[in-house]
Computed example of a mutant assay.
Amino acid sequence: MTIEEIKTEILKTESKIVLLSHKNPDGDTIGSALALYHLFSNLNIDTTMIVPNDFPDFLKWMPGADRFIVATKEEKLAHQSINNATLIFFIDFNNYDRINHIEHIVKKNNAPKILIDHHPNPEYFFDFSLSGVTVSSTAELIYSFISHLGYSNKINKSIAESLFTGIMTDTGCFSHNSSKPETFETVAKLLHTGIDKNKIYNNLYNNFSENRMRLLGYALYEKMIVLSQYHTAFFSLSEKELQKFNFQLGDEEGMVNYLLSIKNIIFAVIILEKKNYVKLSFRSKGFFPANYIAKRYFHGGGHLNAAGGKSYKSLSETITKLQTILKDDQALQKYF
């Protein structure tokens, strides 16, 4: 499909658009979906947003965030919306395993499928793909997509807030994957709409609970391990420890960056014990390939400097595995 053909599909009277976000949604997938939702709704197009599971409270301040269908809570409505869709957007993910239990419903629908994403190694089942791994965020690609549709003049404050949120969160407040002028040119155009950058920052980063701050302090003081020979720092938290601090969805957001701020540390990991698996979040500096470790060893993936994965071993076995990888993987030794 071409941009012109997509625009024709969007503007058809009978169009029913579904915007899919990935599981464990972050600011980029939520902000990007909301931006398209506001655009299409303003064009009087029937548009539905679906997330496989719920997203953190610090993202729920954005206009329209309450209109997401959370598939784990409203499964029947999610399935019905997908079955009726005439156009399906995959936003900030590029393979089916990122939408969990709604995958089979999406596969059954033969409607055109549109990919807008900036992660590596996309699957090839899309009718149109706007993909670029060197772009800061999917939100930046959404801005480009809207412009190519000829609707840049329709970017209002709600759309701009959503896109700014996506870019800011996925670059760690412009600390990584944000060195291209095009990113800041896009941000400048968003600021020209009159959005309040300070309000957005406060809603995202100055909005945590007291329990979350105490958990962070505990993790850094009691649980942090520094492996200076590998320029690596990590901490792990058991399910019991998380419960002690009344852990809530999204409480881990940004914690790994504290480890990366240590002098001479180029690789940081947080390891959280969940009910049926162990979650790992990776961050790195420079050319250290966080996504290589995530993909090769931990059923995950992501970007060079920001990635995630899972382990189905115990918490202690996962920690041992990570340390063994750093010690034995020959491809990593040049970084140490």
Rank of each mutant, 00 (worst) to 15 (best):
A139M: 01
G132M: 04
A294T: 08
K275N: 09
E317M: 13
I50N: 01
A35W: 00
Y277K: 15
K199T: 12
F208V: 12
Q333H: 13
R212H: 05
S261I: 11
S81C: 12
D251T: 06
Q229Y: 07
D46Y: 15
I155D: 01
T320D: 15
P120T: 08
N110K: 10
S152F: 05
I195V: 13
L215H: 08
R214E: 14
A307S: 11
D170T: 10
I167A: 00
N206I: 02
I142G: 01
Y124A: 13
N24W: 02
K321R: 15
T318Y: 04
I88N: 01
Q229A: 13
V18H: 02
H119S: 07
H119I: 05
E210D: 15
G217V: 04
I17D: 02
T13R: 13
Y221W: 13
L191M: 14
V187L: 02
N206L: 11
V106Q: 04
A139F: 00
M255R: 04
L326R: 04
N257V: 11
F68N: 05
L304W: 00
N44M: 11
G31K: 00
I200T: 03
F287S: 15
T232W: 07
S81G: 09
A219P: 08
S129K: 08
D57Y: 11
A233K: 04
L149I: 00
P63D: 12
Q248H: 10
T171S: 09
F174A: 10
I99D: 03
E9Y: 05
H299N: 12
E222K: 13
M224D: 01
K285G: 06
T186Y: 02
L87C: 04
A331Y: 09
P181E: 11
N153Y: 08
Y258E: 07
N211P: 09
L272K: 08
I105S: 08
M1T: 09
Y205V: 04
G301W: 00
P120M: 06
L204M: 07
K279P: 00
D66G: 11
L237T: 01
I142V: 15
I159C: 04
Y335M: 06
N95I: 01
S175T: 15
D66S: 14
R283N: 09
Y221V: 14
H101F: 14
L43K: 12
F126E: 00
G309Y: 03
A294F: 10
K108G: 02
N177R: 08
L272G: 04
N206W: 03
I225D: 13
L280W: 03
H192C: 08
V269H: 06
D92T: 01
G166D: 05
K12H: 14
T8S: 10
G27R: 07
A331S: 14
T169F: 13
N198C: 11
